[in-house]
Amino acid sequence: MSDAKTFDLSCGLPIENHARIKLAHGGGGRAMARLIEEVFIAAFDNPLLREGHDGAVLDLPRGRSVLTTDSFVVRPLFFPGGDIGSLAINGTVNDLAMCGAKPLYLTASFILEEGLETEILRRVVRSMRTAADAAGVAIVTGDTKVVERGRGDGIYINTAGVGCIERDMSVAPQRIAAGDAILLNGDIGRHGMAVMGAREALAFTTPIESDCASLWHTVDALLSANIDVHCLRDATRGGLSAVLNELAQASGLQFDIVEGDIPVSARVRGACEVLGLDAMQVACEGRFVALVPESAAERALAIMKSRDDAARIIGRATAGEPGLVTLHTLIGGRRILDMPAGELLPRIC
């Protein structure tokens, strides 16, 4: 405080003078108010947020609404193709989209670790705004807590989302019928390998970029074309394997999948070969499967392909053994595609 000009008795830890988050930023006082104003409102700005109320008063369209929530913990916070901010927006947006709901409003709660560089928080928050704009949603209310240094991983984010179902239809596993085509909207395994590459500092010659993206516009295009979508599910943790197994079990049908029709980029394949991982179990953040009647399959595929040329029909739901997912392998064999056991562990040799 040697410079008298910057001394200010009302100073509530102005952000610009504090490059790092302090416990005071979660204390409910002036420091927190400044953080909210200078970081969160500055980035998320919208009329509902500006009201500065304890909650956002929403004007929802008539009809059915969908509510969902998800929490985001990822290390490192930034990785090729995304960061915890874009993940936190797209994750919740995609959960709404998978219910067939148009995403409208999001909440954002932050648990920050004392000592976090404020500039990192700004970057994350800006990325959230960019992702929210791309998905067409507004962040209308939120919360901030600060935990002591060593008690968090920099930033944890929880987002909740509200969306509305615009059409008189239901998108749910119970609607899956024998004969449905199973479509996938792009190549798999990119997000998991991007994060693993960044976390373990694996020296991939060309970095693998996360597929982190909003799925709503693709879903909207399918629904707007009056395709009778029976079910949608995004492939996140556990990858494509987990999603197919969940849906086969929930629908009581057998799924027959053709390995050669599942798109995997050469980079992801190469990284998986080296590490002994199965791309089908690696996380995605911008991929989903759609189950549609066979009669609509080609039309649905054309819509998906117009957004990502790698989209494919990868198999069919059949009567058969309930809950079983079989894979026709590349060389013409046949095997079970099982649920991943849990943590992905690279094999020894």
């Binding site: 392998t329 060389i331 064999g333």
Partner: peptide, 8 residues
Amino acid sequence: ARFGIQDL
């Protein structure tokens, strides 16, 4: 197992 070789 992965390629279903026994079945062939």
